[in-house]
Design a binder for these strands. Structure first.
Lengths: 151, 151
DNA sequence: GTAATTTCTAAACCTAACTTTAGGTCAAGG
DNA sequence: CCTTGACCTAAAGTTAGGTTTAGAAATTAC
């Protein structure tokens, strides 16, 4: 086992807990870029374990794969990322997370107001503000609140 | 325009901002139950406007359609829901929302710890706890952290 | 030197939450 | 009466994020 032979996809899979198919999929989405050995098989750096772990964490925070790709673009291209590099993009994640918590919290406060006052015109109270509904969890088109219901 | 002719699907769509196709889909998912007029067209009660508004809000809070159906099951079946009825299930929503905010906040704190201490073994810090990763946003199987990477 | 694993690619399949399409019916206006 | 627009059903298409399958080639194990 020479020094820089790299990890096979199966090894990377068992180190990260991801399925082999998922790792190939991430490659197709531009999240990771292995090289190939003489036989055409994928080989990964040890730093890719951390890279994939980061992907998994960012997903839990609600980022889409394209968004994660953006964040990862903040890492150096030609050298192995240092702890400082990771800390830097980790802070980018935090900003994202803060926004989500904020939105949810504001939504909750609005809901409380509706329950408290008894008016229960929830669309007006909690949804009428277009800022709050902006892709809080979007899958497929959604036409929301073009006009406020009066009932 | 006699008293209880009800709303057509198009009228309900424009009152709620939903697409007609979405309303039919919700019916298929058991979220709303219109009756039919002699010609076979769907007719809705005015209270259904609120029902659909509630569905939209619950979606923003991250509930799936089956979950929303469960919550709506807490409404009276044979009479029009009163403000008190809505307030009651609104509180159910609040619990759900609180949990999500909580999970996200804990996750954020963990991330802060990782960045702060410089260890950056993010999988261990933020993910190793199985509670946190339980379907925070699940779409498709995910094999997470069977073992903690050492790199 | 085989046999058993892994890995390869491409394409099909999966779930959620809808939309679009196709072909036909109902309802309202003039 | 006739046309136009709203509505009907069933089925297929869409996006995200993957998994499964099929058939072939590379590696590893004995």
């Amino acid at each position: 086992m020479p020094v820089s032979e790299g990890l096979s996809i199966g090894a990377l899979a068992s180190r990260t807990g991801l399925a082999v198919s998922a790792i190939r999929y991430y490659e197709a989405q531009g999240l990771i870029a292995p090289w190939r050995n003489p036989g055409g098989q994928r080989r990964y750096q040890r730093a890719d374990i951390r890279r994939l772990s980061f992907v998994m964490i960012a997903q839990q925070f609600g980022l889409s794969l394209p968004e994660i790709r953006e964040v990862l673009a903040g890492l150096p291209d030609k050298r192995t990322p240092t702890p400082r590099d990771w800390a830097r993009i980790g802070k980018g994640l935090r900003v994202h997370l803060d926004q989500r918590i904020d939105t949810l919290t504001r939504l909750r406060d609005n809901l409380d107001g509706c329950i408290g006052c008894g008016c229960l015109s929830l669309p007006k109270c909690a949804l009428y503000n277009p800022d709050d509904r902006a892709k809080s969890k979007g899958s497929g088109p959604r036409y929301l609140m073009g006009d406020a219901p009066e009932d």
